[in-house]
């Protein structure tokens, strides 16, 4: 099996057994004022996730990463969102499921870890009770066994004094500890896929590294496939095997991690990489960053949506949407750019 096969979306019908999540042509509209003012946030997102894979979705804030995750989970407010496309989970299209069927998917097959650990746990319920309640939604495990399992999970995510923490309320824990609890909560339901949406953004830098290392270890040992959603390419480097780069609601580049980091095929990816701080960076020199800001979802430019910020843009880019261009070998992934695979880094002089 090649990487190209892994990354290319399947055409129709249920995906093979080892595909745990298959997203095809996902489009999401959100309404800003109850049923009116529809704005297209996600414009055609497709990807495939196989058992045990670790995938990262990268992009600046506002690129549609989080909405992609919430669309997959169907956690957006129904009256204010419109989702089309297919989301195959465990051999069935989740978009076509009833609410009841969807609830059995959530947590059991796909669990989520949210961005802000400070507010994502119920403040009036004990940690242990929250984990036990989630577990017992999906299995017939007894209260006592579930509590023992919760304790084991807290140990597993390296929370000190786990017996006491089981009886703690969220506000008694630090942000890093709470995010560990969120990881334990996600693992407790034994999902096939864990979607971690900016899991470390709210944490201190030193804690970030610990939590990411822990997350990687745990998903590996539990055999869960993972989608890491982040704006931080640096975080992706140590975690993911494959990367999707999102811009203005579309996937603009996909490929294996080493190739994307060493040889970006899309100028946007190159721009993100250039703005990363590395050991070789001269601390006194200003880091190059991509000028401007991502477009507002209700005002996406014509042609290639990245062209107003692109240092390589030509008239063609302004008028015509670029095709998805595959690399020399399908293993290398693809990029949606008229000049894909021939990218000049920003500031290299044009």
């Amino acid at each position: 099996m090649t990487v190209g096969e892994i990354l290319a979306p399947l055409e129709s019908g249920p995906p093979p057994d080892d595909v745990v999540l298959d997203v095809r042509g996902l489009r999401t509209q959100l309404s800003t004022s109850r049923g009116a003012n529809w704005i297209q946030i996600i414009r055609d997102v497709s990807f495939t996730l196989r058992r045990n894979q670790r995938l990262a979705i990268v992009g600046e804030s506002g690129s549609g990463k989080s909405v992609t995750a919430l669309s997959i989970m169907r956690l957006l407010d129904k009256s204010a969102s419109e989702i089309t496309g297919e989301v195959w989970i465990g051999g069935e299209d989740a978009q076509a499921m009833s609410d009841r069927q969807m609830r059995r998917i959530r947590g059991r097959r796909v669990a989520m870890i949210f961005q802000d650990p400070m507010t994502s746990l119920n403040p009036v319920k004990r940690i242990g009770d929250q984990i036990v309640a989630a577990m017992r939604l999906h299995s017939d495990i007894s209260q006592k066994d579930a509590m023992a399992e919760a304790l084991r999970l807290l140990k597993e995510v390296q929370i000190p004094a786990p017996e006491q923490r089981l009886r703690s309320y969220p506000h008694e824990l630090s942000g890093g500890m709470r995010q560990r609890v969120m990881i334990a909560l996600a693992l407790s339901m034994e999902p096939e896929v864990i979607i971690a949406d900016e899991p470390t953004t709210a944490l201190d830098v030193t804690v970030q590294a610990q939590v990411m290392r822990l997350l990687k270890e745990r998903v590996e040992s539990h055999g869960a496939a993972t989608i890491l959603i982040t704006h931080d390419l640096g975080l992706v480097a140590g975690f993911a095997e494959f990367v999707l780069v999102m811009y203005a609601g579309r996937i603009v580049e996909r490929g294996p991690i080493e190739r994307v980091l060493l040889d970006p095929a899309h100028p946007y990816t190159a721009g993100l990489l250039a703005s990363l701080c590395t050991l070789d960076t001269d601390p006194l020199e200003e880091l190059p960053s991509i000028e401007g800001a991502p477009p507002r979802p209700d005002d996406v430019p014509s042609g290639c949506s990245f062209h107003p910020r692109c240092w390589m843009a030509t008239d063609l880019c302004r008028t015509e949407r670029p095709p998805m261009v595959e690399g020399a070998s399908p293993d290398l992934g693809a990029a949606e750019c008229h000049f894909a695979w021939n990218v000049v880094p920003p500031g290299a002089g044009t």
Partner: peptide, 14 residues
């Protein structure tokens, strides 16, 4: 509208 309600939904609670 709080985040922990979204968390509860993500665990599949009714």
């Amino acid at each position: 509208g709080q985040n922990y309600i979204r968390t509860a939904r993500s665990t599949g609670a009714t």
